[in-house]
Amino acid sequence: MRERVALVTGAASGIGAAMVRELAGRGWTTAALDLSPAEDASHSVGVDVSDPAQVRAAVRRIERELGPIEAALCAAGHYTIVPVSDIAWPDWQRMLRVHLGGVVNVCKAVTPGMVERGRGSVVAVTSELAIGGGNAEAHYAAAKGAVIGFVRSLAAELAPSGVRVNAVAPGPTDTPLLPADSPWRRTAYLQGLPAGRLTAPEEVALAAAFLVEDATFCAGEILSPNAGAVI
């Protein structure tokens, strides 16, 4: 059996860390890209995913040391609640650089090798806010919406080569990204969800692992593990 190598960005905490644990439990060798060390990963590289040169160098290093990357899961990101009138231009740019730029940079680094081998899977983390919008979250929703457009376009481009590109669009997820006073943790909001609770990061990781391992029929799909926040 050949060793299967999965690259996970944003793997030091939250959804990315859950993805690392899920894939490791399925026998994958996991390589993490994050500004902070990813303790659960087999291999961790300190990288700013918004910097294409850093991402290219990290991918070359990982493939040299571990082998070809068979799956890339893009979970790096950040989140703030700010009214549109108060969002400074640098904040718009950073949101796009990290979320959209991070996915683009990883895809440009890993997919040429996948295409050459005729196999591979990319899963990007977007958000239910990209589908339904959110109050005082326009910069985040816009960046995540751009990820959906990129995923669907790249999926159409690469599907004939055997490389699949998909995404997960979780709703509010029980991670440190949501502070204790977040409106998404309020009882009134949770009671309005069909599931009555936040999504667990492990559930998002399960959806991503399904897209990587089992969903060979999926290309350009957006799965929504969001506790019914968007139906």
Rank of each mutant, 00 (worst) to 15 (best):
L100T: 14
L100W: 07
G101P: 10
G102E: 05
V103S: 08
N105H: 02
V106P: 11
C107M: 13
C107H: 03
K108Q: 13
V110N: 10
T111C: 03
G113T: 07
M114W: 08
M114N: 14
V115F: 00
V115S: 00
E116R: 07
E116D: 07
G118N: 14
G118A: 11
R119V: 03
S121M: 00
S121N: 07
V122F: 00
A124M: 01
V125K: 13
T126H: 07
E128F: 01
L129W: 14
A130S: 14
I131F: 03
A136C: 14
A138N: 12
H139C: 09
A141V: 14
A142C: 05
A142F: 04
K144D: 06
G145D: 11
A146T: 05
V147A: 11
V147K: 10
G149I: 00
F150N: 13
F150Y: 14
L154I: 08
L154F: 03
L154T: 14
A156Y: 02
E157M: 02
E157L: 01
L158R: 06
P160G: 09
P160A: 04
G162L: 09
V163L: 07
R164K: 08
N166D: 10
N166F: 00
N166H: 03
A167V: 00
A169K: 12
G171T: 08
P172M: 07
T173Y: 11
D174G: 02
T175D: 12
P176Q: 13
L177N: 13
L177C: 08
L177D: 12
P179W: 10
A180T: 14
A180N: 13
D181M: 05
R185T: 06
R186E: 12
T187C: 03
Y189M: 02
L190S: 05
G192S: 08
G192H: 02
L193D: 10
P194R: 11
P194N: 09
G196A: 06
A200L: 02
E202Y: 04
L206A: 15
L206H: 13
A207Q: 03
A207C: 03
A208F: 00
A209I: 00
F210T: 07
D214R: 11
T216V: 10
A219S: 15
G220L: 08
G220E: 09
